[in-house]
Structures are given as C-alpha cells and as structure tokens.
Design a protein around this nucleic acid. Sequence first.
RNA 1: GGGCGAUUAGCUCAGCUGGCUAGAGCAUCUCGUUUACACCGAGAGGGUCGUAGGUUCGAAUCCUACAUCGCCCACCA
Length: 758
Amino acid sequence: MKKEIPKAFDSNSKEKEIYKIWENSGLCRPEGIEELLKQNGLKIKSPFTIVLPPPNANANLHIGHMCGYSFQDAMGRYQRMTGHPTLLLPGKDHAGIQTETSFTKVLKEKGIDKWEMGKEEFYKQCYAFSMGNASNAREQEKNIGLSADYTRELFTLDPKLTKIVYDTFYKMYKEGLIYRDKRIINQCPNCKTALADIDTEHEERRGIFAYIVYPFVEEEDRKRAKEKFGVEGITVATTRPETMLGDSAVAVNPQDTRYKEFVGKKVLLPIANREIPIIADSDIDIELGTGALKVTPAHSPVDFEIGKKHGLEIINVINEEGKMTGSIPERFLGMETVECSKALVKELSEKGLLIKIENIKHEISICERCRTAIEPIISNQWYVDVNPLAKKALEVLKQGETTVIPSGQQKALEHFFNNIQPWCISRQLWWGQRIPVWYSGSKKLHDWLRENEGKDIAEFKKETGEEARGTGEIYLGENAPDDFGIWEAEEDMFDTWFSSGQWPYSTLGGIGGEDYKKYYPTQVMETARDILFWWVARMMMMGIYTTGKTPFSTVFLHGLILAADGSKMSKSKGNGVEPTEVINKYGADALRLWYFSDALPGSNAPVREEKIKGNRNFVNKIWNASRFILMNIDESELEKISNHELDMSLSRIKETQEHTIKVLKYLEKFQFNLGAEAIREFFWHQLCDIWIEEIKGEIKDEEIGSEERVEKLSELLWILKSNLKIMHPFVPFITESVWQELVNLELAEGILMGEQIS
RNA sequence: GGGCGAUUAGCUCAGCUGGCUAGAGCAUCUCGUUUACACCGAGAGGGUCGUAGGUUCGAAUCCUACAUCGCCCACCA
C-alpha cells in the first residue's frame, strides 16, 4: 500500500489547488498549447476561439452564468486536447443602463442622491463599483473551472475598445447608416433616458377607459350630433385623458356611417379650448371604443403615424420626466401624468363632458430595468439604420455560415431580422461611452436646422431666443476640434449593445490586430437565449458590417435555469440558487455535469439538488476507483509498470478506444448530454463494476512484481488514463487531481489539460 | 394578433435521417457490514410515448386536425 489517499474527494481544497496548476501552466493561452504541441512534434491544428460573453460588472454571477462557462470550458478543453490552440477570451461588461440603475440604487441605500453627486463623481464611483464586481466575477469564473486566457481579459470601457467602437460609429455615420432623427421614442421617466423598442417589456396593468365628449364648433353640427348621439359632440374613448391636451385631431374610419357626415368639421377640444378637425383614416377600428380616436401625435406611436400621414401638428405636453409641460393651462403645468389625468377627469365631469369611466386591464410598455411605465414622447435621438445590416445577417443564416442551436431559435432570429426597426442608440445616461460628436454652436441649433430645412439660420434666434453661435455642423471625434468657435459636446451615451455588439472583433484588437488576424472569425458563441436579439443579432450585424465576415459559425444557446419548482429565478421572489453554495457543497465538477445533462439548448432546467448530489457521487466514484488502482500498485512495481509495453489488441483496451471515439463525436456535435451519460456509464458500470472486479480476481493470488500483475495493472492504468482524458472536458478538477497523483508516482507526466486525446 | 417550441416512468429529460421487447439520472421498494467507494453493491417495481385520424409491411419517431402548457415578438386608442 502506498501513501494514504483520502476516501472522499475533497473538492473544496483540491479545486483551488488544481486551478493554480492550470493557471501557472500557461496552457490557458493558445500560445501555450502551440508551444506544447511543437515540443511534442504534434500537428498544430486551426485555432479555436470563443469570445466569452462578458457578464455585467454590477452584481455577483448567478447560476445561469456558471452554466455558460461550463459549456464554454468543456468546448475549449475538448479543442485543446485535440490539437487546437484554444482561446477562451474573457471580459466584463460595463452594461450601461443596467449598471447605472443598480449603482444608483446602491447609492440610494446609503442615502446618497445621484443627481446631487453629479456626473463626474458618479462615473468615478461607478467605475470603482464595477471593478469590484468584475474582480468577484473573475473569481467565480475560476471556481467553475473556466480555463480562459485571463492575460487577455478586457473591460468594455477599455480605451482600446472604445477607439474601435468610435471608428465604427464614424464609418457608419459617413455612410449614412447612423443619423439623427426626431421621432417618437420610449422614454423612461424614472431612468430619464430614451430606450430602444427592444429595451421595453409589456405588462398587463389596470387602467381606465374614459369616454369624453368633444363638442362641435358649429351650432349646426352640435344640433345634428345631439339628435344622433344625444350629446353635442363626438365622443372619444381614451386610456390616457391627460394626453388630450396635446390632441391635434379626431380620427374616424371613412366607412363609419355614424361619423361620415362630420368628417372635415371641427370640434372644440375641451379645457385646452383649441379647435381641431375630424379626419378620416382607414386604419381606425370601427369596433374599438367609440370608433372615434383622439389623435395625439406627440405621445402615442399610433397617433404619431396618423399625424405624419395627415400632416397634423405635433403638440408636446409631457416632458422627459413624465411631467406635464408645453402650452397647456397653467394649473396643469408640472403635474405628474396620473395626477393630471385625475384633474382633467374631474373638470370634464363638472362640465358634463365625461360620459363614463370604465375600469380596464390593458397591456402597456414598461422599462425593462425599473418597470416604470414608458412615456412615448417626441425627441431627437441617434439611430442606426439596421435594415441593410439585417439583410446581410439573414443571408449569412441562409447560407449556413452561422448556425443557431437549437434550430427553433434560428427561426426566431430570422423573424427578428425580417421585422427589424431602426435602432435608437443614444441614451441619456452618465455611465458608458459618450457618443463622440461635437456640435458647432449647440446641439439645439443642429437639431433646429435639421427640423427646419430651408430656413435661414437667422430665424433660430427669433424662434428660440438663443444666439446661434455657430453653424450647427457636426464634428466627429473624441475631443473637440482645435479651431475657433464654440463646440458643444454631445452628452448622450451609447446604448451598451452598440459596444458589446462589436465584442467579437473589438476584443481581438479590431481589423489589423494580431489576434484578429489569427482568431477572427471565431468558431462558437455560447450564451443564454434571452439575449439572442439584444446581443447575438447585433454582433452578427455589426460583425458582418465591419469585417465582412460573420463573427462566429455556431451559436449555442444553453437552456434556461429555473428554480426547483420550475418558476423563473428572480431576486424579488428570493428563489435564486447561489452557485458558490452549490460548488462549496458538491464541487464544481458535479455542478458542471448537471448542466451538461440538463441544461441543453431548448430545454428548461429546474435546479434539483439531488441530481447534483448524484453527480457528486459519480465524481467521488472516479476518485475511489483511481485510488483503488493506485493502492494496488506496490512501490516496487512502479518502474516495471511505467516501462511495460502494453498489448493494444486486448479487448478492454479496444473497447476503451471505441468509447473515446464515441465521446469525441458527441463533443464535436455539441451533444453534451450524451457525452456526459456515456462517460458515466462507461466509467462506472463498465470499468468499475465489471473490469475492476474482473481484474481483482485475476491478480488476487499473484505475487507482487509478477509478470501477470504488471500486465494487468498496466492495462488497468492505461484504461484509467484514457478515461481521465476523455472525461476531462466534463469534469476537469477530479480528472486533473487524479492525473497529478499519477504524476507524483511517475506514472504520468505533465498536466492533463494539455494532454492530447488520440 | 404574429412567431417558436413542448406534451414519453413520481420528477427532469434522452430517444438524430421511421424497425424498442421504449431508455437514463434522481426518487421509490427489496436484499447486502465481500478490506476502492454506503458519496457503495446486487436486484425490483413503474409508461397503451397528450387526443383523434392518416401514410407505411412497420410510428414515440413522418403528415393532418384538436387539446393543454410554455417562451418570444407586437402601437390596438
């Protein structure tokens, strides 16, 4: 018997130790693998690259992140062990609005107000906050065994990356793909920023449906209406009475016999006391409400379109903070929309213009981050015309240059590309990358000139009361031009996805970068399916645009990790599972195995502790079987065994080789569940249950050092080593631990991570 | 309203291009203190593969309806 080896595998202490060995080996770098292959005279195959999804540096990693890392790492280790210089490129995301929201909350808990703190100080502290989180995240990544190249780790706000992001912006602007436009946008009154359509969610909420009479201007019409409808005007139904202050028209369907005769007539908008016309539009639903729609182009996307079609005036009555503004009766100025709605309803009711109020439930848009109701308002923002980019991305999918697993998600992606809308990329935030633009004179002047095409710049002062002070031109650049004149900086930030959309090539140094030349395009993008449109779609569009090549050939979307009862994990429900706790309890390998068998693309995976426990048992089985084999080898036999020439035609050896080939195939085809099942089945039920028992019997009566023993033990050892290799991508810690035990006895060399499977 | 997907043992799922007497893990039950491992071993029970049709020599696997569930997208006042 050799030295004492503990009966149970102590994952807690071993894992840390093993990770250090990997880290110090240099094998996490593709150069390390290249070097190793060269030394051993082996063929260096094509590089394998995964640019890892950078987690948001605003919180600890959750169990879903760990899932991604497990798959990425398994893919990487498999490639590394089959001759490919492998780069798993890690990073951290500044995550724009998300981090700004969460850090603002952190400050609030400390009683600090972001607005009092000011932009610069906020940025500084937010940076420190992010760095702290990034460092935690890095530790967690290592805990699951992620063999990433941390010498290349990047943060999305790294100046090197920012430069690349800016260059893309300049190029797109010059080619007319990026432009400034005045449109109706999603404004979050709480975050005080514009949001892209995709950054909003829909939720059913309770609301009101108010029926309001807009009396006709002409006596004659009033009479006619009274006869027909019993009131002296046309009745509109609305969920948002406060927007009536910004109404420009009432629209009816031209086919609607009730209102036909009134088209072209005028009504007096109550309270605001403005005359507005009745217009006809075939898009109006006769069945809905009263069939007459109050049109508020400034505060409803539908109305905005109708307004554009009919050349209606846009009247802003709600500002960026969700408060009443503009040319409205003074008593409403500054009110919250809800407050204003109530006040209006009261006044209308007193005037006898309110028919009724129904309580209803309806879908509204809310901010994805803070769940505040979105306020549609008109504003000037920066847009990307993504249409031509989406067309190219579609082509790439059609040609099979990029494949999405599972295939259903590929269809969803195609659908997204087919129905894509202009992408609003400007955000009124403090945290992120500033849009690198300067305005001669002022931003206001620039927008005014754009909106008032043909007008003389002299009119600017007349209309706005401000001096022009410049030409309104745009200058592109991080710093202001050094010439005379006044340049106003664009203060808006980029949507975080504008920079992360460039992640696959920006992290590789961009076009011309050494790493870019070697590692772009990458092979796999492994991520969660909930950011398919936000991120994967953007990376494809921007990657194809900038580099002419799709950034990755396979998109692998792992399953959704759920709470034990099958519900979504969420902070508010408190049903989250802490990955660190799971790892401490059962070990990283056990958790990884669970992902591989349960969190496949297209599936939902409720976290079941018993299953992870079962995997821990398997890991321990590996440990004990190895321990048994080692304990059976007498010290005096070590040399004989390591020099023994094995007969490769033995049936157990051949079966093991076939098994290895089978598992390699599974790995190649991303069938991790089948792979995990196969290694378990083979190791446990073939090697342990049958072969070890057989060999036990075969050598029972043999003397130590005998030919028979050396042969059998060599065979067993060879089978063990083969198993360790093929199991390594799945369960790297336990396999490397055993390998290192073998190294100590001079029964193996080097580091398992760098071993080649053949 | 549009798109996508699911429906197989108590639970979570495998079952690819039709040939299974339908599998795994976990759970359940019985037996076992054999010096690798009780984080173990030997064994058992448990499913008319959502429903109804169709194609076929043959269907969990292909087709068509229906039912139920889930996810995503969408400006219905």
